[in-house]
């Protein structure tokens, strides 16, 4: 049994075209998985399903063998404790009217987690490399990279088993991006990282395993290193060839 099991998931909005078709993969505890796809690949929908925000039309998503049932609120509370997320846009993922402390403590309050919340929040803040003076400040006083650190602190404060990152570095500057990827990598030693992104370079840097989605289907999966070294599917090959690289040095 894997930590996270996605089995035969189908999804479509209303009676529209299928967004996801027969998507299956498993994430082992302690692994890091990158889900790569472009717009229209269904990766955003897949993320919403993994977060329990939407129900699949068919198939199951299971954590530690127990399938998600979004209508069972006590199950969902347990699930949310174990699966937390970081979103793409650090300017809209933090409530501008809440202090940093209130933002980070939200999962603790909402999931009614026992313990010293002040200490837990301080620990999470420290883990993402922000100092304790940040707690009484508000999101607009921070840069994009710092805001994303705050969002990560919120995601790890309840010590989840799975950390879902949705394009978590796409909106950041290049040098900030490197630092946040390094932070996520460091955190993935203690929890399982699932990184949804269109950016192959970021996934290559952060994830051991990779799943490539094209128009709602998985076209290729495996160890990131193997897939990138010898991409088998034409789509993966095209994707890899499209990534702009730095020019070679002067010859």
């Amino acid at each position: 049994m894997s930590l996270l099991d996605v089995n035969g998931v189908d999804f479509s909005y209303g009676r529209g075209k299928p967004v996801l078709q027969q998507v299956s993969f498993a994430v082992e505890a302690g692994a890091s998985l990158g889900i790569v796809g472009e717009s229209g690949s269904g990766k955003t929908t897949l993320l919403r399903l993994l977060l329990g925000l939407t129900r699949p039309d068919a198939g199951t998503i299971a954590l530690n063998g127990a399938a998600i049932d979004t209508r069972d609120s006590s199950f969902m509370r347990g699930y949310r404790r174990q699966v937390q997320a970081v979103f793409q846009d650090p300017y809209s993922s933090l409530d501008p009217r809440q202090s940093v402390f209130d933002i980070i403590a939200e999962p603790l309050r909402s999931l009614r987690i026992a313990g010293d919340h002040v200490a837990l929040v301080a620990g999470a803040l420290d883990a993402v490399g922000l100092d304790a003076t940040s707690l009484r400040r508000y999101p607009h006083q921070f840069s994009g990279g710092q805001r994303q650190r705050i969002a990560i602190a919120r995601a790890i404060v309840a010590r989840p088993q799975v950390l879902l990152a949705d394009e978590a570095v796409s909106a950041l500057d290049l040098t900030t991006r490197v630092r946040i990827v390094a932070l996520l990598q460091a955190l993935s030693k203690d929890m399982t990282l699932v990184f949804v992104s269109h950016d192959l370079g970021v996934v290559a840097a952060a994830c051991r395993d990779i799943v490539v989605l094209e128009r709602g289907r998985i076209v290729e999966s495996g160890r990131t290193r193997d897939v990138l070294a010898r991409p088998k599917h034409p789509y993966t090959q095209a994707l890899l060839a499209s990534v702009p690289r730095m020019p070679e040095g002067l010859s």
Partner: peptide, 18 residues
Amino acid sequence: RSLVAAARSFDRALEGVA
């Protein structure tokens, strides 16, 4: 230098030498 290093780090990851 820091920009170039950041950009090259993702390139290296793609080459599998991270």
